[in-house]
């Protein structure tokens, strides 16, 4: 089942569905892209004796499982910062490891390296890469200053504040232009960076299109 109306972002002529969960879906390649899962962030902070709830990994994986069940992708790309730190895979609870394995079963799984988890090789199942190019599109964790053709990246956790009728809501968001898409963070404990921040603004010198995540779908909002 898909959302009532799909929100489509096109990049290099290819349509991508911006899912309300924060995942990106390419129907033609049956490819699902998620970014910044930050698994085991809770336990990472707990190791510094900040005892945040240990449920973030389970919750992130449950949300991921729901998206995967809806789209049944052939391949999943996790765009880096999949784990909050390098030791993350080792701290995963047994049940979470099992959940992850079941999600990986029967499909390709690509871990792109992020700044939090530069090396995952050997710690988890799946294909670990620094970055990936498919067709005209480059998949990487950190956006490059000037992408050649098309680029899908994460890293920045974009968020947008929508002000309406005296109230405001802050939502995670996809930010895009002709040449790139910056994806929202998918993880349960991931905070956000306002799209007006220079780090995001500077990537979109011409104009940016913003899609805020709603309950049912992503909505295009004024930047």
């Amino acid at each position: 089942m898909t959302a009532p109306t799909e929100t489509v972002i096109s990049l290099s002529g290819r349509p991508f569905v911006a899912d309300a969960s924060g995942a990106l879906w390419c129907a033609a390649a049956r490819l699902l892209i998620v970014s910044d899962l930050h698994l085991e962030k809770g336990s990472s902070l707990a190791a510094r004796r900040l005892h945040l709830p240990p449920y973030d990994t389970a919750q992130t994986l449950a949300r991921l499982a729901a998206v995967i069940a809806r789209y049944r992708p052939r391949a999943v790309i996790s765009l880096g910062d999949s784990f909050h730190d390098r030791a993350g895979p080792g701290r995963m609870a047994t049940c979470d490891v099992a959940t992850l394995k079941s999600l990986q079963a029967g499909r390709d799984w690509i871990w792109i390296a992020g700044n939090h988890d530069p090396v995952l090789e050997g710690a988890v199942d799946g294909d670990c890469r620094a970055e990936m190019v498919e067709g005209a599109i480059r998949f990487a964790h950190e956006p490059t200053a000037v992408p050649a053709a098309g680029e899908i990246a994460g890293h920045l956790h974009p968020c947008v504040t929508v002000v309406a009728r005296g109230g405001s809501v802050r939502r995670k968001a996809f930010v895009s232009c002709e040449t790139r898409i910056v994806m929202p963070a998918f993880g349960a404990f991931t905070g956000g960076l306002d799209i007006r921040a220079p780090a995001i603004r500077s990537l979109f010198p011409e104009r940016m299109t913003v899609f805020a995540l709603g309950e049912q779908r992503a909505y295009r909002v004024a930047a």
Partner: peptide, 10 residues
Amino acid sequence: LVYDVLRRHE
């Protein structure tokens, strides 16, 4: 975020 996670799980 902690609040949301905690409310759901505990």
